[in-house]
Simulated scan of single mutants.
Amino acid sequence: MKLHWGNYLVLGMGLFMAFIISMAIYMFSQTKDDYDRQYYEKGINYDADYNREKQVITDKAAPQISFDAQSMRLKFPAPIQGKIRFIRAADKRMDKLFSIQSQKAADTVFIGLSELAKGPYRLRMEWQSNQKQYLYEQEVTLK
């Protein structure tokens, strides 16, 4: 049986529609995107975070960070009170939050690392000292 150009046109349109329908089914069957649901709230707080990060540089308040096999040591130039968050990009269930506090300048704050898995983390330290707010972030790899 010989097909005419009109039949080819209808066949081509049918194949194209089948392709579009199959792509729509594929898209709807995929898992949801893991986007940040607090995107706008974080955008509003960006200026405050930027000012706290800048305050660390202005006051030269960045902590000295060192590691040994069991712990992380932080040394701040002034007494502090705050928190440190270990953020694991690969799995947010592995994130950990610790409270930190030092009573006097140059006190060493120890954080036990036994409950943290080895690998890369982003440290987010937020603290207050001398009625000022600070924010410091750093990438680390636990070995």
Rank of each mutant, 00 (worst) to 15 (best):
M1K: 07
M1V: 13
K2E: 15
K2M: 13
L3N: 07
L3F: 14
L3E: 12
H4P: 05
W5T: 03
G6W: 06
G6M: 08
N7P: 00
N7G: 09
Y8F: 13
Y8T: 06
Y8S: 09
L9N: 03
L9Q: 03
G12Q: 05
M13D: 01
L15Q: 05
F16G: 11
F16Q: 09
A18P: 04
A18V: 09
I20D: 08
I20Q: 05
M23Q: 10
A24R: 11
A24F: 12
M27V: 12
Q30T: 12
Q30I: 08
T31Y: 04
T31S: 14
T31M: 07
K32A: 11
D34G: 08
Y35I: 15
D36G: 08
R37T: 11
R37M: 11
Q38I: 10
Q38F: 15
Q38C: 10
Q38H: 13
Y40H: 05
Y40M: 11
E41W: 08
E41F: 09
G43H: 06
G43F: 06
N45W: 11
Y46V: 04
A48E: 10
N51F: 02
R52S: 04
R52M: 13
E53A: 04
E53P: 00
K54H: 02
Q55A: 05
Q55K: 02
T58K: 05
T58E: 07
D59Y: 00
K60T: 07
A61R: 04
A62H: 01
I65H: 00
I65Y: 03
I65L: 08
F67P: 06
D68C: 14
D68L: 14
A69I: 13
Q70T: 14
S71Q: 15
S71V: 14
M72N: 10
M72H: 09
L74E: 10
L74T: 09
F76W: 04
A78C: 07
I80S: 03
I80L: 04
Q81M: 14
Q81I: 14
Q81F: 08
Q81E: 15
Q81G: 10
Q81R: 13
K83T: 12
R85K: 09
I87N: 07
I87D: 11
R88D: 03
K92I: 12
K92G: 09
K92M: 12
R93G: 15
R93C: 05
R93D: 15
M94D: 03
M94L: 06
D95C: 06
D95L: 07
K96L: 09
F98C: 03
F98L: 08
F98S: 03
Q101F: 15
S102A: 15
S102G: 13
S102Y: 14
Q103K: 15
K104V: 11
A106E: 13
A106Y: 13
I111K: 05
L116K: 06
L116A: 07
L116V: 11
A117S: 05
A117H: 01
K118F: 00
K118Q: 01
K118M: 01
G119F: 00
G119C: 02
Y121E: 01
Y121K: 00
Y121T: 01
L123Y: 03
L123F: 04
R124L: 10
R124C: 10
W127S: 02
W127V: 02
W127R: 02
Q128C: 00
Q128F: 00
N130D: 12
Q131I: 00
Q131C: 00
Q133L: 06
Q133Y: 01
Y134A: 01
L135M: 02
Y136N: 01
Y136V: 02
Q138R: 07
Q138W: 02
Q138P: 03
E139V: 11
E139Q: 13
E139D: 14
K143E: 07
K143H: 05
